[in-house]
Amino acid sequence: MRGGELQTSPATAAPVRRRVGPGSSRLLPLVPFVGLIVVWAVAWAVVRPKLATMPSIGQVAHTTQHLWSTGELWRDIGASLYRWGLGFVVGAISGVALGIVAGLNRIVARMLEPVMTFFTAMSGIVWLPLAIVWFGLGTTTVTFVIWNSVFFLVFANTMLGVRSAPRLLDDAARTLGAGRAHIVFHVIVPGSLPHILTGLRSAVGFGWRALIAAEIIGASTGLGAMIYQSKEFLRSDIIVTGVIFIAAIGFVLDTFILAPIERSTVERWGLVSTGRAR
């Protein structure tokens, strides 16, 4: 599976058609959110739905504050972040390490490609029923599913990266007398970094979404479980609170987790242009 994620718009060469001040262009992204909130408020005021169907903004704010102060919110956020963190770190390390090893040998890489493609297609929540049989409901199952989602994606991208590293640099280093190990660590690995980082970047969001799905189906704590269980009690305000936090944390992870690493490596080295993601 390709490192699938939303493509960001590349820096366009088009001239600016309208003169937009620097201040207003930064506020622009907020407009749809504000619009959504306005629509929500108006719709609620007009329809006055029951708490079971749709909460008011005030109710959501109140519930958030309540869950925050009783610590329930933190317990669930903590559980989710812990599982995601563990699954992501283990998946990333194992994916990169094995991907590099597999990618170094052309024959091995070609051999593994179909198998890994198949497992990538099968990765993630498809393993949930099996994981529940093996580990029961709870943290182990959820973490396993996240590891699964992250590992195959990162492995595939890493292996691709290693195979795509320009041979020229290899040979250049060797003419200067570099040994095999040196070439691996100082030429091939940095050369594969764009692909590796693409894989990691996709895996962040992928893993977070898999986390929520796994928690809904297979856990009793965590943000996913929180929003699923509240439907039993017809507490749509808790559901909406949970969804907002899921979106916010997911967004933060997506945007900020790898950015510093990317900035100090591939962007500084000029291997990718800023603002691009594949």
Binding site: G205, W208, R209, I212, I227, V243, F251, D254
Partner: peptide
């Protein structure tokens, strides 16, 4: 994008 379909599911 971060709010996957599955997160919408309970609602």
């Amino acid at each position: 994008q971060s709010v996957s379909g599955i997160a919408i599911l309970p609602l």
